[in-house]
Write a protein that binds this DNA or RNA. Structure first.
Lengths: 329, 329
DNA sequence: CTGAAAGCGCTTACAG
DNA sequence: CTGAAAGCGCTTACAG
């Protein structure tokens, strides 16, 4: 910048004014400065600017696993929207591990990101509340948090989605409905669980704790496979399952195939998320649709409101879901 | 930092020494400083540090589309490896658009990232050569570039993969083999094209330009669907196709289903990448396997070598591929 | 319309 | 083992 100023015969301040298009600069001076910038290939340092302004044009996105198609679709929405507004985004996997999530959170905070979007582990609930603040805005996606300055919510109607799934299965005549609950994290899946329970109740069906199976292995598909095998081995009279997400449902389909149980004739399966491949597996998956791209888009929109806005209290953003019926039920 | 120094009764420099675990500090002083840091909740600013050291602990990853399972698996490898080495990573979608790619490149450069990993559009080949340099290390993945300081290559044996696909189809007795080439970008797909061509030649089969179909629409699956329909409408005697990637192959399967052409009986299809879902579509896809996670891991490893290393010339890293035979052929 | 000075929060030689 | 000074590359009041 100093070099540019010297070469153009102006002060550093004037160069700054030209670069930032602010303040009055005579046309001729501007032209000269711009030409010099071109010539010298000068690029303003975002780092230096960040140091003095105390803000960066960066955001953070912390999610469980980018290789899960649900998250990668959300990420696409986040990236497109952020980029359109001139922000670059840091991406971190938490691998669903509270420790890693915390590390990501503080590392990004140290980078002075403008704000973060996070799909938090339920174990970090309290720490997140302490971490967030007006100076460190957080958008929390699909987890319920009490209102608090610095935290804003973007939510899908998860409970309603679970309810739709059960309604559908009950409508098909199923009386013994199990659930593949993903990992054993009662609070995290509470919404799905609540909707599931409400649905059973509404149809006068039994809620049997043993028919709710979780598994702690690493990949979602594998987890679905293992928990489905377990469920079907111990409780063969269960004729329908509601899966935590589509990957788990896919694992369940594989388990059924191996055990010689036909889908949907012997066992009906409903997934969640409606990832791109839900329509392409065999049989095509009945599932609860979430608009993942829109989820990412709204999260960024909300985060930018918090960054620029007057710090007013913002209502949670609620996004609808809908049941997509295919051949697995 | 000044506050910590004051509260601990030492100089700023001593605090810096403690934070960075460098230089000699008496145990007692260190303890006192550490305690003060805890108490005040002091966190060193990465921005300020970056300004003076002229390096950040950040990397950039620029790819076509994070919602493509191929890229999201690569991203997982990149993220895990970078994080283990203490780096955070910026993620950018180019959407396969040269302009967007360039914007991402320069935006990240302005953020002073340590280096970038990029799957470049072939149109940007020359600009990339000008952009990269010892101070701006680039790892280019799966595109051939001449050796140049500041650019290092990580490559899969793409040509060999294409060759394997053709060998397999020829071995099954197919004499009329077409290709679904993705988007019309001759250079970008040169490697696949070369392997395809070599394979045909080796088996004495015709290379027919009209049997190579591209399409410019947005999503890969859609592109596969449309180009497959076009190919089969105009050239019904083609009995086998080699697809640019698995998403395109999946689109082709859909097209076949609609046209009433059975896979593999009427048309055999080979994909590329072996994404997670290749095994789960119907029929399960024969495809060329790439270790995507490893690709990401190696790219980061190489990038860090360039960052820390003595600037020696580094040979391209070559990763093998293999054919996975399933039921689509 | 333009400039000189101070300062963002650190690290890097250089002294002691 | 510890400290005072300079400076990274910008922006922000404040003058003129």
């Amino acid at each position: 910048m100093r070099d540019v100023a010297r070469a153009a015969g102006v002060s550093i301040k004037t160069v700054s004014r030209v670069v930032n298009k602010q303040g009055e600069v005579s046309d001729e001076t501007r032209r000269r400065v711009l030409a010099t910038i071109q010539e010298l290939g000068y690029r303003p340092s975002k780092v230096a600017r960040a140091l003095v302004t105390q803000r960066t044009d960066t955001l953070g996105l912390i999610l469980g696993d980018i290789s899960n198609p649900f998250f990668s679709e959300v990420a696409r929405g986040v990236l497109d929207t952020a980029q359109a507004e001139g922000y670059d985004v840091f991406l971190c996997n938490s691998d669903y591990d509270p420790e890693q999530e915390l590390r990501a959170l503080s590392s990004l905070a140290d980078h002075n990101v403008g704000g973060m979007i996070v799909f938090p582990c339920w174990e970090n609930r309290e720490k997140l509340r302490a971490f967030a603040g007006p100076a460190r805005p957080l958008v929390v996606v699909n987890r319920i948090f009490e209102p608090q300055p610095g935290i804003s919510l973007v939510l899908n109607e998860i409970r309603r989605g679970a309810r739709l799934a059960v309604d559908h299965l009950a409508g098909k005549g199923h009386r013994s409905i199990g659930m593949l609950a993903g990992r054993a994290a009662p609070l995290q899946i509470m919404e799905r669980m609540q909707g599931f329970r409400e649905g059973l109740q509404a149809h006068g069906l039994p809620f049997v704790a043993d028919w709710i199976v979780a598994d702690e292995c690493n990949s979602d598909v594998e987890r679905g496979y293992r928990s489905a095998r377990r469920l079907m081995a111990h409780h063969p009279r269960v004729t329908a399952v509601f899966a935590y997400n589509d990957l788990i449902a896919v694992g369940a389909i594989q388990a059924c195939r191996e055990l010689g149980r036909r889908v949907p004739d012997d066992v009906a399966i409903v997934g969640f998320d409606n990832i791109q491949f839900a329509a392409m597996v065999q049989p095509p998956l009945t599932t609860v649709h979430i608009d993942k791209y829109e989820l990412g888009r709204q999260a960024v929109t909300r985060l930018l409101e918090m960054l620029n806005g007057p710090g007013s209290d913002l209502e949670p953003i609620r996004l609808d879901v809908e049941l997509v019926v295919r051949q697995s039920t």
